[in-house]
């Protein structure tokens, strides 16, 4: 418990520093003014979502190879958090887009691909909820997660492959931002990843408890049935 509280304290401190840097430390954008500050949270959430979905993919492949339910617990927990971070990406993107482009929503390739990603992993979570058998749920969910993950690299590449109004920040030639802004962005990303790690630990513990309770109930039911027989 003490160790977990320590982790939470570190992440809270990181978040406070990142927020201070995002809202105070970084300079205003020459064109967009203070609204640029939304971008740091947007980018942090996007990186955390990408990491979360990648963990889901790796854990799903791990489950299919080993049939160990521990992997499925990781995949489910990470998909939940990834979907949450994607919601943050969409929300902050909508707010930033209103200021930068003058519209709340546009069918730009990047925005459409992100909305699709959110729908796919929401579908994945809904699908999981509709299945009772843990073993079967894990098997089918692993396949769904692998299929849904196809949209993650696609989402990343949309602004490079198609004509998009979404800004390209990271290129092979470097980061297209002022150094002080890069610091704010990096801190925001680290803080969001910290939130992901801590939240992941909590969700994995909860999922494991849920699984153990179901198993204990099943064993008890089996015991009662065999006594009856």
């Amino acid at each position: 418990m003490v160790r977990r509280t320590g982790w939470v304290a570190i992440v809270v401190a990181l978040m406070v520093v990142a927020l201070w840097m995002d809202l105070q430390g970084a300079p205003d954008d020459a064109v967009l003014g203070a609204s640029q500050r939304i971008f740091y949270i947007h980018m942090g959430a996007a990186v955390a979502a990408a990491v979360a979905f990648t963990v889901t993919l790796v854990a799903s492949i791990g489950f299919l190879l080993s049939k160990n339910l521990r992997y499925d617990v990781f995949a489910a927990a990470s998909a939940e958090l990834g979907t949450l971070f994607t919601s943050m990406v969409l929300l902050t993107g909508i707010l930033w887009g209103r200021v930068a482009w003058g519209v709340w929503w546009t069918w730009d390739p990047r925005i459409t691909a992100t909305a699709l990603l959110w729908m796919l992993f929401s579908g994945y979570l809904l699908w999981r909820e509709s299945l009772d058998d843990w073993e079967r749920r894990a098997r089918v969910s692993a396949v769904v997660a692998i299929v849904a993950y196809l949209d993650v690299p696609l989402d990343y590449m949309t602004i490079r492959w198609w004509r998009s109004i979404h800004p390209v920040v990271l290129t092979i030639r470097g980061i297209h931002m002022a150094p002080s802004m890069v610091w704010a962005m990096a801190l925001s990303e680290i803080a969001m990843l910290g939130v992901y790690v801590v939240w992941m630990r909590i969700r994995v513990t909860l999922f494991t408890c849920e699984y153990e309770i179901v198993q204990a109930k099943n064993l008890r039911r089996l015991g009662t049935t065999s006594k009856g027989v």
Partner: peptide
Amino acid sequence: LFYALALTTERAGPVLPVLIVPLELPILI
């Protein structure tokens, strides 16, 4: 592929369109 998934998951059928429609959007576009 997705209706094949539904074969072994009796109660999951109604949720399928939630997964299929977004996946088919790229081909539609």
